[in-house]
């Protein structure tokens, strides 16, 4: 295995195109354990962290641009970013220990393709887009379209995610993410639930997004929950409908960490709670961003 650390996107794509089993990495917090567990070792490992775009965090009036290889600790410790996206920041902050946080990236969390990847439901509810670079240039796709199954993405072997785009959070809008694990730290989600809510001045929900992790082969949106929320004040009946829709959207596995019934029930509870947190936060976000 050879290590390569290109300094530009073009250099990285040409390296990927010229080596048959080259693989990109950022923190290697998935890559190394996978190699240790017996996955074939690529002939070239391409370190993305020396490319400026991959490690920069910027914003303008319209959007945030988040480098795909930024260590997640930089996102959670950035007061402006985590203040505007508390849900995404909490989700990113749940990935592993402090030792892992100094390495783990959103690009790696997404492209590893785990159904339980914590940041993905939070990216999806925020409508994040991924800028993909390849030999023919770049394309922008919805994060929700990147993962196609466990460990599978729609990226070609010579493509990689450069950065994520997130629209600026308008006033009276907010996100939230909750996960259920059997311990309090250092475990993989049994269920993860992300929500984003937009409120009108009188508190009526005008837009809602709900997404679940770890309950299906990929992260799933829950349109029935979103429809149930829009136009309401999130009264008890609505929340019962949200929970039922979330449970119905699950197609979970049955394993030692949670049975199918358990995961479905927890998905309903967490979706409801995440929605309530997002509503409370949205209500406090008045005025300028």
């Amino acid at each position: 295995m050879k290590y390569a650390a290109p300094s530009s996107v073009e250099e990285a794509t040409s390296l990927l195109s010229s080596s048959p089993s080259a693989q990109v990495f950022a923190g290697a917090t998935d890559v190394v354990p996978q190699i240790r567990a017996g996955r074939p070792v690529p002939d070239v490992l391409v370190d993305l962290k020396k490319i400026d775009e991959l490690v920069s965090l910027t914003n303008d009036a319209e959007k945030w641009t988040v480098g795909a290889a930024i260590p997640t600790v930089r996102l959670t410790e950035d007061a402006a970013f985590s203040g505007e996206f508390p849900g995404l920041s909490e989700a990113a902050g749940l990935i592993g220990s402090d030792q892992i946080q100094s390495r783990s990236s959103l690009g790696g969390n997404l492209c590893n393709g785990s159904p339980a990847a914590d940041s993905v439901p939070a990216l999806v509810v925020n409508g994040a887009r991924a800028l993909i670079a390849g030999p023919k240039g770049t394309r922008l796709i919805d994060v929700s379209d990147v993962v196609t199954g466990p460990g599978e993405t729609c990226l070609a072997s010579d493509e990689f995610v450069v950065e994520f785009e997130l629209d600026r959070m308008p006033s009276r809008s907010a996100d939230a993410y909750l996960r259920m694990i059997p311990r309090t730290e250092m475990d993989i989600a049994v269920v993860g639930a992300g929500a984003r809510i937009v409120l009108s001045e009188d508190g009526t929900i005008t837009d809602a997004a709900v997404a679940l992790g770890a309950v299906a082969p990929t992260v799933v949106r829950v349109p029935a929950a979103e429809e149930a929320l829009v136009g309401t004040l999130a009264d008890d009946d609505t929340l019962v409908a949200v929970a039922a829709a979330a449970s119905d959207a699950c197609n979970p596995i049955d394993d030692k960490r949670g049975t199918i019934d358990y995961r479905k029930q927890v998905a309903g509870v967490l979706a409801k709670r995440a929605v309530l947190i997002a509503i409370e936060r949205a209500g406090q976000r008045n005025g300028d961003v």
Partner: peptide, 9 residues
Amino acid sequence: MVTCACLVF
């Protein structure tokens, strides 16, 4: 930054 040296090449 605190890091696992086993995960760094």
